[in-house]
Nucleic acid binder design. Structure first.
Lengths: 242, 242
DNA sequence: TTTCATAACTGGTATAGACAACTAGATAAC
DNA sequence: GTTATCTAGTTGTCTATACCAGTTATGAAA
Protein backbone atom coordinates (compact mmCIF):
# COMPACT_ATOMS: atom_id res chain seq x y z
CA UNK A 1 0.00 0.00 0.00
CA UNK A 2 2.83 2.35 0.92
CA UNK A 3 6.17 1.79 -0.79
CA UNK A 4 9.07 3.72 0.64
CA UNK A 5 11.29 2.92 -2.32
CA UNK A 6 9.10 4.54 -4.90
CA UNK A 7 10.15 8.03 -6.01
CA UNK A 8 6.65 9.16 -5.00
CA UNK A 9 6.56 10.88 -1.61
CA UNK A 10 5.16 8.75 1.18
CA UNK A 11 2.70 11.39 2.32
CA UNK A 12 1.39 11.62 -1.22
CA UNK A 13 0.95 7.86 -1.52
CA UNK A 14 -0.93 7.79 1.76
CA UNK A 15 -3.13 10.72 0.81
CA UNK A 16 -3.99 9.07 -2.50
CA UNK A 17 -4.77 5.84 -0.73
CA UNK A 18 -7.13 7.50 1.73
CA UNK A 19 -8.71 9.55 -1.03
CA UNK A 20 -9.50 6.33 -2.89
CA UNK A 21 -11.07 4.85 0.21
CA UNK A 22 -13.32 7.86 0.41
CA UNK A 23 -14.20 7.77 -3.27
CA UNK A 24 -15.13 4.11 -3.31
CA UNK A 25 -17.09 4.32 -0.07
CA UNK A 26 -14.78 2.35 2.21
CA UNK A 27 -14.67 5.50 4.29
CA UNK A 28 -18.03 7.16 4.59
CA UNK A 29 -18.82 10.79 5.38
CA UNK A 30 -18.79 11.40 9.09
CA UNK A 31 -16.76 8.27 9.76
CA UNK A 32 -13.61 8.66 11.81
CA UNK A 33 -10.23 7.73 10.39
CA UNK A 34 -7.44 5.94 12.22
CA UNK A 35 -5.49 8.39 14.36
CA UNK A 36 -2.31 9.95 13.09
CA UNK A 37 -0.35 7.81 15.49
CA UNK A 38 -2.04 4.68 14.20
CA UNK A 39 -1.16 5.50 10.61
CA UNK A 40 2.40 6.16 11.66
CA UNK A 41 2.70 2.82 13.39
CA UNK A 42 0.86 0.86 10.72
CA UNK A 43 3.06 2.05 7.87
CA UNK A 44 6.15 2.51 9.97
CA UNK A 45 6.41 6.18 9.14
CA UNK A 46 6.70 9.28 11.26
CA UNK A 47 3.55 10.82 12.68
CA UNK A 48 4.43 14.10 10.96
CA UNK A 49 4.47 12.34 7.61
CA UNK A 50 1.08 10.80 8.24
CA UNK A 51 -0.11 14.20 9.34
CA UNK A 52 1.15 15.75 6.12
CA UNK A 53 -0.92 13.27 4.14
CA UNK A 54 -4.01 14.16 6.17
CA UNK A 55 -3.23 17.87 5.84
CA UNK A 56 -3.48 17.61 2.10
CA UNK A 57 -6.93 16.04 2.29
CA UNK A 58 -8.08 18.49 4.94
CA UNK A 59 -6.99 21.39 2.73
CA UNK A 60 -8.93 19.95 -0.15
CA UNK A 61 -12.00 19.59 2.00
CA UNK A 62 -12.17 15.81 2.04
CA UNK A 63 -11.45 15.50 5.73
CA UNK A 64 -11.86 17.60 8.82
CA UNK A 65 -10.24 17.42 12.20
CA UNK A 66 -11.56 17.90 15.70
CA UNK A 67 -8.93 18.34 18.34
CA UNK A 68 -9.17 15.69 21.00
CA UNK A 69 -11.60 13.58 18.97
CA UNK A 70 -10.09 12.62 15.68
CA UNK A 71 -10.11 13.09 11.92
CA UNK A 72 -13.30 12.53 9.99
CA UNK A 73 -14.49 12.21 6.44
CA UNK A 74 -16.16 15.42 5.36
CA UNK A 75 -19.61 15.52 3.90
CA UNK A 76 -19.76 15.69 0.17
CA UNK A 77 -18.47 18.91 -1.21
CA UNK A 78 -21.01 21.58 -1.76
CA UNK A 79 -19.92 23.54 -4.75
CA UNK A 80 -20.29 26.52 -6.90
CA UNK A 81 -23.55 28.19 -7.62
CA UNK A 82 -24.53 28.18 -11.23
CA UNK A 83 -27.02 30.57 -12.70
CA UNK A 84 -26.73 33.39 -15.16
CA UNK A 85 -24.29 36.20 -14.93
CA UNK A 86 -26.36 39.26 -14.39
CA UNK A 87 -25.90 42.65 -15.82
CA UNK A 88 -28.12 45.30 -14.38
CA UNK A 89 -30.22 45.24 -17.52
CA UNK A 90 -30.75 41.48 -17.47
CA UNK A 91 -31.39 41.60 -13.75
CA UNK A 92 -34.11 44.24 -13.99
CA UNK A 93 -35.80 42.62 -16.96
CA UNK A 94 -35.92 39.36 -15.00
CA UNK A 95 -37.70 41.25 -12.22
CA UNK A 96 -40.23 42.66 -14.64
CA UNK A 97 -38.94 46.21 -14.40
CA UNK A 98 -37.94 48.52 -17.19
CA UNK A 99 -34.23 49.33 -16.97
CA UNK A 100 -32.72 52.63 -18.06
CA UNK A 101 -29.54 54.56 -17.40
CA UNK A 102 -28.18 58.00 -17.02
CA UNK A 103 -24.55 58.40 -17.95
CA UNK A 104 -22.68 60.52 -15.43
CA UNK A 105 -19.15 59.98 -16.45
CA UNK A 106 -17.20 58.33 -19.26
CA UNK A 107 -13.46 58.60 -19.74
CA UNK A 108 -10.17 56.83 -19.91
CA UNK A 109 -8.04 57.17 -16.81
CA UNK A 110 -4.77 55.66 -15.61
CA UNK A 111 -5.72 52.84 -13.27
CA UNK A 112 -5.15 53.53 -9.60
CA UNK A 113 -3.90 50.63 -7.56
CA UNK A 114 -7.27 49.51 -6.23
CA UNK A 115 -8.62 49.20 -9.77
CA UNK A 116 -5.48 47.76 -11.33
CA UNK A 117 -5.33 44.98 -8.78
CA UNK A 118 -8.67 43.29 -9.41
CA UNK A 119 -8.17 43.72 -13.17
CA UNK A 120 -4.68 42.28 -12.88
CA UNK A 121 -3.15 45.04 -14.95
CA UNK A 122 -0.34 47.45 -14.22
CA UNK A 123 -0.97 50.52 -12.16
CA UNK A 124 -1.54 53.53 -14.43
CA UNK A 125 -2.49 51.30 -17.37
CA UNK A 126 -5.42 52.92 -19.22
CA UNK A 127 -8.89 51.88 -18.15
CA UNK A 128 -12.36 53.03 -19.10
CA UNK A 129 -14.22 54.44 -16.16
CA UNK A 130 -17.95 54.56 -16.69
CA UNK A 131 -20.33 55.81 -14.05
CA UNK A 132 -24.04 55.53 -14.50
CA UNK A 133 -27.18 55.94 -12.50
CA UNK A 134 -29.29 52.87 -13.03
CA UNK A 135 -33.02 53.27 -12.99
CA UNK A 136 -35.83 50.75 -12.84
CA UNK A 137 -39.19 51.99 -14.02
CA UNK A 138 -37.62 55.45 -14.00
CA UNK A 139 -36.79 55.30 -10.28
CA UNK A 140 -33.11 55.49 -9.27
CA UNK A 141 -32.01 52.11 -8.11
CA UNK A 142 -28.24 52.14 -8.09
CA UNK A 143 -25.05 53.92 -8.96
CA UNK A 144 -22.74 51.75 -10.95
CA UNK A 145 -19.15 52.35 -11.94
CA UNK A 146 -17.57 49.99 -14.45
CA UNK A 147 -13.90 49.63 -15.19
CA UNK A 148 -12.57 47.94 -18.30
CA UNK A 149 -8.95 47.62 -19.31
CA UNK A 150 -8.66 49.82 -22.40
CA UNK A 151 -6.12 47.41 -23.86
CA UNK A 152 -8.59 44.55 -23.67
CA UNK A 153 -11.96 46.13 -24.30
CA UNK A 154 -11.00 48.40 -27.19
CA UNK A 155 -12.95 51.10 -28.90
CA UNK A 156 -15.68 51.76 -26.35
CA UNK A 157 -17.80 54.81 -27.14
CA UNK A 158 -20.62 56.59 -25.40
CA UNK A 159 -22.99 55.19 -27.97
CA UNK A 160 -21.94 51.64 -27.21
CA UNK A 161 -22.23 52.27 -23.49
CA UNK A 162 -25.77 53.52 -23.90
CA UNK A 163 -26.68 50.50 -25.95
CA UNK A 164 -25.00 47.40 -24.50
CA UNK A 165 -21.38 46.98 -23.57
CA UNK A 166 -21.71 43.23 -23.22
CA UNK A 167 -23.28 42.77 -26.64
CA UNK A 168 -20.43 44.82 -28.11
CA UNK A 169 -17.81 42.76 -26.28
CA UNK A 170 -19.27 39.49 -27.42
CA UNK A 171 -20.16 40.35 -30.98
CA UNK A 172 -17.38 42.72 -31.97
CA UNK A 173 -14.51 41.67 -29.75
CA UNK A 174 -15.36 38.00 -29.18
CA UNK A 175 -14.89 38.45 -25.46
CA UNK A 176 -17.29 36.26 -23.54
CA UNK A 177 -17.64 36.50 -19.80
CA UNK A 178 -17.53 33.04 -18.34
CA UNK A 179 -17.44 33.58 -14.62
CA UNK A 180 -17.77 36.29 -12.07
CA UNK A 181 -17.16 36.80 -8.40
CA UNK A 182 -19.42 39.10 -6.48
CA UNK A 183 -18.95 40.52 -3.04
CA UNK A 184 -21.96 41.96 -1.31
CA UNK A 185 -21.92 44.08 1.79
CA UNK A 186 -24.22 46.32 3.66
CA UNK A 187 -23.37 49.91 4.34
CA UNK A 188 -24.58 53.48 4.70
CA UNK A 189 -25.11 55.97 1.90
CA UNK A 190 -22.49 58.68 1.42
CA UNK A 191 -23.93 62.16 0.82
CA UNK A 192 -23.15 62.16 -2.91
CA UNK A 193 -24.66 58.73 -3.34
CA UNK A 194 -27.70 59.71 -1.36
CA UNK A 195 -28.32 62.64 -3.65
CA UNK A 196 -28.12 60.58 -6.81
CA UNK A 197 -30.25 57.81 -5.39
CA UNK A 198 -32.74 60.28 -3.95
CA UNK A 199 -32.49 58.88 -0.46
CA UNK A 200 -31.29 60.56 2.68
CA UNK A 201 -27.66 60.46 3.64
CA UNK A 202 -27.00 57.61 6.05
CA UNK A 203 -29.76 55.42 4.65
CA UNK A 204 -28.82 51.77 4.25
CA UNK A 205 -27.36 50.74 0.95
CA UNK A 206 -25.92 47.60 -0.52
CA UNK A 207 -22.49 47.66 -2.08
CA UNK A 208 -21.77 45.06 -4.70
CA UNK A 209 -18.42 44.48 -6.30
CA UNK A 210 -18.13 42.24 -9.30
CA UNK A 211 -15.08 40.97 -11.10
CA UNK A 212 -15.93 39.26 -14.36
CA UNK A 213 -13.54 36.85 -16.02
CA UNK A 214 -13.08 35.47 -19.52
CA UNK A 215 -12.59 31.80 -20.31
CA UNK A 216 -8.86 31.98 -19.74
CA UNK A 217 -9.33 33.62 -16.39
CA UNK A 218 -8.38 37.12 -17.49
CA UNK A 219 -10.36 39.70 -15.56
CA UNK A 220 -12.35 41.69 -18.08
CA UNK A 221 -14.39 43.95 -15.90
CA UNK A 222 -14.51 45.37 -12.43
CA UNK A 223 -17.74 46.91 -11.24
CA UNK A 224 -18.56 48.74 -8.06
CA UNK A 225 -22.18 49.48 -7.43
CA UNK A 226 -24.28 50.96 -4.70
CA UNK A 227 -27.91 49.90 -4.52
CA UNK A 228 -30.77 51.42 -2.60
CA UNK A 229 -31.49 48.93 0.15
CA UNK A 230 -35.19 49.74 0.16
CA UNK A 231 -35.60 48.78 -3.48
CA UNK A 232 -33.16 46.04 -4.15
CA UNK A 233 -32.57 42.52 -2.92
CA UNK A 234 -29.84 40.28 -4.19
CA UNK A 235 -30.89 36.74 -4.98
CA UNK A 236 -28.78 33.74 -5.72
CA UNK A 237 -29.62 30.12 -6.29
CA UNK A 238 -27.07 27.48 -5.53
CA UNK A 239 -26.92 23.85 -6.39
CA UNK A 240 -24.79 21.08 -5.08
CA UNK A 241 -22.65 19.69 -7.84
CA UNK A 242 -21.24 16.32 -7.18
CA UNK B 1 7.32 40.92 15.91
CA UNK B 2 7.17 37.30 17.00
CA UNK B 3 6.45 36.63 20.64
CA UNK B 4 7.00 33.08 21.79
CA UNK B 5 5.25 33.66 25.09
CA UNK B 6 1.92 34.60 23.60
CA UNK B 7 -0.70 31.88 23.54
CA UNK B 8 -0.92 32.48 19.79
CA UNK B 9 1.00 29.91 17.76
CA UNK B 10 4.29 31.15 16.35
CA UNK B 11 3.54 30.00 12.83
CA UNK B 12 0.29 31.91 12.97
CA UNK B 13 1.96 35.10 14.16
CA UNK B 14 4.51 34.84 11.39
CA UNK B 15 1.86 34.15 8.76
CA UNK B 16 -0.13 37.16 9.92
CA UNK B 17 2.95 39.32 9.85
CA UNK B 18 3.80 38.31 6.29
CA UNK B 19 0.21 38.69 5.21
CA UNK B 20 0.27 42.25 6.48
CA UNK B 21 3.42 42.97 4.55
CA UNK B 22 1.67 41.79 1.43
CA UNK B 23 -1.46 43.77 2.15
CA UNK B 24 0.33 47.04 2.76
CA UNK B 25 2.63 46.60 -0.20
CA UNK B 26 5.90 46.00 1.62
CA UNK B 27 5.99 42.76 -0.27
CA UNK B 28 4.92 43.12 -3.86
CA UNK B 29 3.58 40.50 -6.26
CA UNK B 30 6.38 38.58 -7.89
CA UNK B 31 8.85 39.57 -5.23
CA UNK B 32 10.76 36.83 -3.47
CA UNK B 33 10.54 36.34 0.27
CA UNK B 34 13.38 35.53 2.65
CA UNK B 35 14.16 31.85 2.57
CA UNK B 36 12.71 29.50 5.15
CA UNK B 37 16.09 29.19 6.80
CA UNK B 38 16.43 32.95 7.00
CA UNK B 39 13.08 33.26 8.74
CA UNK B 40 14.08 30.47 11.09
CA UNK B 41 17.33 32.17 11.98
CA UNK B 42 15.89 35.65 12.21
CA UNK B 43 13.16 34.72 14.66
CA UNK B 44 15.06 31.91 16.30
CA UNK B 45 12.47 29.35 15.42
CA UNK B 46 12.64 26.02 13.69
CA UNK B 47 12.63 25.92 9.93
CA UNK B 48 9.56 23.67 10.02
CA UNK B 49 7.69 26.29 11.98
CA UNK B 50 8.61 28.96 9.47
CA UNK B 51 7.59 26.59 6.76
CA UNK B 52 4.22 26.02 8.39
CA UNK B 53 3.59 29.76 8.34
CA UNK B 54 4.43 29.92 4.66
CA UNK B 55 2.31 26.83 4.01
CA UNK B 56 -0.73 28.61 5.30
CA UNK B 57 -0.21 31.53 2.96
CA UNK B 58 0.56 29.25 0.05
CA UNK B 59 -2.68 27.38 0.69
CA UNK B 60 -4.58 30.62 0.73
CA UNK B 61 -3.04 31.67 -2.55
CA UNK B 62 -0.98 34.57 -1.27
CA UNK B 63 2.36 32.95 -1.99
CA UNK B 64 3.78 30.35 -4.30
CA UNK B 65 6.93 28.30 -4.12
CA UNK B 66 9.47 27.21 -6.69
CA UNK B 67 11.76 24.46 -5.61
CA UNK B 68 15.37 25.50 -5.76
CA UNK B 69 14.49 29.15 -6.23
CA UNK B 70 12.42 30.44 -3.39
CA UNK B 71 9.01 31.60 -2.23
CA UNK B 72 7.24 34.45 -4.01
CA UNK B 73 4.26 36.72 -3.57
CA UNK B 74 1.45 35.56 -5.83
CA UNK B 75 0.19 37.83 -8.56
CA UNK B 76 -3.40 38.00 -7.70
CA UNK B 77 -5.57 36.97 -4.89
CA UNK B 78 -8.43 35.56 -6.80
CA UNK B 79 -10.59 35.15 -3.74
CA UNK B 80 -11.52 31.60 -3.16
CA UNK B 81 -14.89 30.73 -4.56
CA UNK B 82 -16.37 30.39 -1.13
CA UNK B 83 -19.74 29.75 0.21
CA UNK B 84 -21.45 26.48 0.33
CA UNK B 85 -25.15 26.18 0.40
CA UNK B 86 -25.35 25.18 3.95
CA UNK B 87 -24.40 26.36 7.25
CA UNK B 88 -22.92 29.20 9.14
CA UNK B 89 -20.38 26.75 10.49
CA UNK B 90 -19.07 25.78 7.08
CA UNK B 91 -19.06 29.36 5.98
CA UNK B 92 -16.92 30.52 8.89
CA UNK B 93 -14.56 27.58 8.64
CA UNK B 94 -14.07 28.39 4.97
CA UNK B 95 -13.13 31.90 6.00
CA UNK B 96 -10.65 30.59 8.51
CA UNK B 97 -12.65 31.63 11.54
CA UNK B 98 -13.74 29.50 14.46
CA UNK B 99 -17.52 29.29 14.63
CA UNK B 100 -19.55 28.90 17.78
CA UNK B 101 -23.13 29.48 18.83
CA UNK B 102 -25.27 30.55 21.69
CA UNK B 103 -28.76 29.12 21.74
CA UNK B 104 -31.37 31.76 22.56
CA UNK B 105 -34.55 29.97 21.78
CA UNK B 106 -35.75 26.49 20.84
CA UNK B 107 -39.35 25.43 20.56
CA UNK B 108 -42.13 24.08 18.40
CA UNK B 109 -44.66 26.64 17.27
CA UNK B 110 -47.61 26.61 14.88
CA UNK B 111 -46.33 28.10 11.64
CA UNK B 112 -47.49 31.63 10.93
CA UNK B 113 -48.28 32.39 7.35
CA UNK B 114 -44.96 33.98 6.47
CA UNK B 115 -43.13 30.84 7.61
CA UNK B 116 -45.62 28.33 6.23
CA UNK B 117 -45.43 29.81 2.76
CA UNK B 118 -41.72 29.39 2.01
CA UNK B 119 -41.78 25.92 3.60
CA UNK B 120 -44.83 25.02 1.52
CA UNK B 121 -46.73 23.65 4.49
CA UNK B 122 -50.12 24.51 5.97
CA UNK B 123 -50.50 27.45 8.25
CA UNK B 124 -50.38 26.38 11.92
CA UNK B 125 -48.54 23.19 11.03
CA UNK B 126 -45.88 22.54 13.69
CA UNK B 127 -42.42 23.94 13.01
CA UNK B 128 -39.24 24.08 15.03
CA UNK B 129 -38.14 27.62 15.68
CA UNK B 130 -34.48 27.88 16.65
CA UNK B 131 -32.77 31.17 17.34
CA UNK B 132 -29.05 31.38 17.88
CA UNK B 133 -26.36 33.97 18.13
CA UNK B 134 -23.59 32.98 15.81
CA UNK B 135 -20.05 33.85 16.77
CA UNK B 136 -16.84 33.78 14.80
CA UNK B 137 -13.65 33.71 16.82
CA UNK B 138 -15.90 34.45 19.82
CA UNK B 139 -17.20 37.70 18.35
CA UNK B 140 -20.93 37.98 17.61
CA UNK B 141 -21.39 37.84 13.88
CA UNK B 142 -25.03 37.15 13.30
CA UNK B 143 -28.41 36.25 14.72
CA UNK B 144 -29.93 33.31 12.97
CA UNK B 145 -33.41 31.86 13.21
CA UNK B 146 -34.07 28.51 11.57
CA UNK B 147 -37.44 27.00 10.83
CA UNK B 148 -37.94 23.32 10.09
CA UNK B 149 -41.21 21.57 9.47
CA UNK B 150 -41.60 19.29 12.48
CA UNK B 151 -43.27 16.68 10.29
CA UNK B 152 -40.23 16.47 8.04
CA UNK B 153 -37.31 17.07 10.35
CA UNK B 154 -38.41 14.88 13.25
CA UNK B 155 -36.94 14.51 16.70
CA UNK B 156 -34.81 17.63 16.93
CA UNK B 157 -33.39 18.24 20.36
CA UNK B 158 -31.28 20.95 21.90
CA UNK B 159 -28.35 18.60 21.89
CA UNK B 160 -28.65 18.03 18.16
CA UNK B 161 -28.98 21.73 17.57
CA UNK B 162 -25.79 22.38 19.49
CA UNK B 163 -23.98 19.73 17.54
CA UNK B 164 -25.04 19.82 13.91
CA UNK B 165 -28.57 19.87 12.59
CA UNK B 166 -27.40 19.12 9.08
CA UNK B 167 -25.38 16.10 10.12
CA UNK B 168 -28.45 14.82 11.99
CA UNK B 169 -30.67 15.40 8.98
CA UNK B 170 -28.34 13.58 6.68
CA UNK B 171 -27.28 10.72 8.88
CA UNK B 172 -30.40 9.99 10.89
CA UNK B 173 -33.15 11.17 8.58
CA UNK B 174 -31.44 10.74 5.21
CA UNK B 175 -32.46 14.25 4.24
CA UNK B 176 -29.83 15.85 2.03
CA UNK B 177 -29.99 19.46 1.03
CA UNK B 178 -29.35 19.75 -2.66
CA UNK B 179 -30.10 23.33 -3.50
CA UNK B 180 -30.87 26.61 -1.85
CA UNK B 181 -32.08 30.06 -2.71
CA UNK B 182 -30.74 33.01 -0.80
CA UNK B 183 -31.99 36.54 -0.68
CA UNK B 184 -29.70 39.22 0.62
CA UNK B 185 -30.66 42.72 1.58
CA UNK B 186 -29.21 45.60 3.43
CA UNK B 187 -30.91 47.13 6.42
CA UNK B 188 -30.56 48.77 9.80
CA UNK B 189 -30.22 46.98 13.12
CA UNK B 190 -33.28 46.83 15.35
CA UNK B 191 -32.59 47.59 19.02
CA UNK B 192 -32.85 43.94 20.09
CA UNK B 193 -30.59 42.83 17.29
CA UNK B 194 -28.11 45.56 18.06
CA UNK B 195 -27.85 44.41 21.64
CA UNK B 196 -27.18 40.80 20.71
CA UNK B 197 -24.70 41.74 18.03
CA UNK B 198 -23.01 44.29 20.25
CA UNK B 199 -23.41 47.11 17.77
CA UNK B 200 -25.38 50.28 18.12
CA UNK B 201 -29.00 50.45 17.14
CA UNK B 202 -29.32 51.75 13.60
CA UNK B 203 -25.99 50.33 12.48
CA UNK B 204 -26.06 48.71 9.05
CA UNK B 205 -26.77 45.01 8.93
CA UNK B 206 -27.25 42.44 6.25
CA UNK B 207 -30.37 40.31 6.21
CA UNK B 208 -30.11 36.96 4.54
CA UNK B 209 -32.99 34.59 3.94
CA UNK B 210 -32.37 31.10 2.79
CA UNK B 211 -34.72 28.39 1.66
CA UNK B 212 -33.04 25.02 1.34
CA UNK B 213 -34.48 22.23 -0.75
CA UNK B 214 -34.06 18.46 -0.85
CA UNK B 215 -33.33 16.47 -4.00
CA UNK B 216 -37.01 16.19 -4.75
CA UNK B 217 -37.50 19.92 -4.34
CA UNK B 218 -39.24 19.82 -0.96
CA UNK B 219 -38.33 22.87 1.13
CA UNK B 220 -36.59 21.54 4.21
CA UNK B 221 -35.51 24.70 5.93
CA UNK B 222 -36.20 28.37 6.08
CA UNK B 223 -33.59 30.59 7.68
CA UNK B 224 -33.61 34.27 8.48
CA UNK B 225 -30.36 35.78 9.61
CA UNK B 226 -29.03 39.19 10.46
CA UNK B 227 -25.32 39.78 10.01
CA UNK B 228 -23.15 42.59 11.27
CA UNK B 229 -22.29 44.60 8.19
CA UNK B 230 -18.91 45.59 9.55
CA UNK B 231 -17.80 42.00 9.89
CA UNK B 232 -19.44 40.13 7.11
CA UNK B 233 -19.36 40.21 3.37
CA UNK B 234 -21.29 37.82 1.27
CA UNK B 235 -19.36 36.34 -1.59
CA UNK B 236 -20.59 34.32 -4.46
CA UNK B 237 -18.80 32.96 -7.46
CA UNK B 238 -20.86 32.35 -10.54
CA UNK B 239 -20.08 30.37 -13.59
CA UNK B 240 -21.95 30.39 -16.84
CA UNK B 241 -23.60 27.04 -17.14
CA UNK B 242 -23.67 24.97 -20.30
C1' DT C 1 -26.49 6.09 42.09
C1' DT C 2 -24.28 10.27 41.26
C1' DT C 3 -20.35 13.21 41.09
C1' DC C 4 -15.81 14.25 40.33
C1' DA C 5 -11.05 13.47 39.39
C1' DT C 6 -7.98 11.09 36.45
C1' DA C 7 -5.97 8.55 32.82
C1' DA C 8 -5.75 7.58 28.15
C1' DC C 9 -6.76 8.87 24.13
C1' DT C 10 -7.17 12.61 20.15
C1' DG C 11 -5.12 16.51 17.22
C1' DG C 12 -2.04 21.11 17.60
C1' DT C 13 2.41 23.13 17.90
C1' DA C 14 7.32 23.17 17.93
C1' DT C 15 12.15 21.52 17.76
C1' DA C 16 16.58 19.95 15.48
C1' DG C 17 18.42 17.61 12.19
C1' DA C 18 19.13 15.02 7.79
C1' DC C 19 19.18 14.17 2.96
C1' DA C 20 16.96 14.70 -1.77
C1' DA C 21 15.69 17.56 -5.68
C1' DC C 22 16.25 21.51 -8.03
C1' DT C 23 18.23 26.25 -9.56
C1' DA C 24 21.56 29.54 -10.74
C1' DG C 25 25.89 31.40 -10.74
C1' DA C 26 30.90 30.58 -10.52
C1' DT C 27 34.63 27.99 -12.11
C1' DA C 28 37.28 24.78 -14.79
C1' DA C 29 38.13 22.27 -19.04
C1' DC C 30 37.94 22.18 -23.69
C1' DG D 1 34.07 31.41 -26.67
C1' DT D 2 31.66 27.26 -25.40
C1' DT D 3 30.63 23.51 -22.60
C1' DA D 4 30.74 20.86 -18.60
C1' DT D 5 31.24 20.64 -13.68
C1' DC D 6 31.06 22.22 -9.19
C1' DT D 7 29.00 24.67 -5.41
C1' DA D 8 26.06 27.26 -2.61
C1' DG D 9 21.50 28.17 -1.86
C1' DT D 10 16.67 27.10 -2.29
C1' DT D 11 12.41 24.21 -1.37
C1' DG D 12 10.74 19.15 -0.66
C1' DT D 13 10.52 15.21 2.21
C1' DC D 14 11.13 12.65 6.35
C1' DT D 15 12.48 11.30 11.10
C1' DA D 16 12.04 11.20 16.17
C1' DT D 17 10.69 13.54 19.91
C1' DA D 18 8.35 16.57 23.11
C1' DC D 19 4.82 18.95 25.20
C1' DC D 20 0.20 21.42 24.95
C1' DA D 21 -4.91 21.36 24.47
C1' DG D 22 -9.22 19.32 24.07
C1' DT D 23 -12.31 14.97 24.57
C1' DT D 24 -13.99 10.84 26.59
C1' DA D 25 -14.16 6.71 29.20
C1' DT D 26 -12.85 4.82 33.55
C1' DG D 27 -12.98 4.39 38.17
C1' DA D 28 -12.85 6.17 42.86
C1' DA D 29 -15.26 8.83 46.21
C1' DA D 30 -19.41 10.65 47.97
Amino acid sequence: MINKNLPIPIYYQLAESIQKQIDNGELKPGESLPSEREYAEKYNISRMTARQALNQLVNNGYLYRVQGKGTFVAEKKMEKPLIGITSFTEDMLARGLKPSSELLHFEIIPAPQQIAKPLQINEYAPVYEITRIRLADAVPMAIETNYFSANLVKGLTEKIVNHSIYAYMEEQLQLTIEQATQTIESSIAEPVEAEHLQIHSGAPVMRIERIAFLQDGTPAEYVKSTYRADRYKFMVHMQRNQ
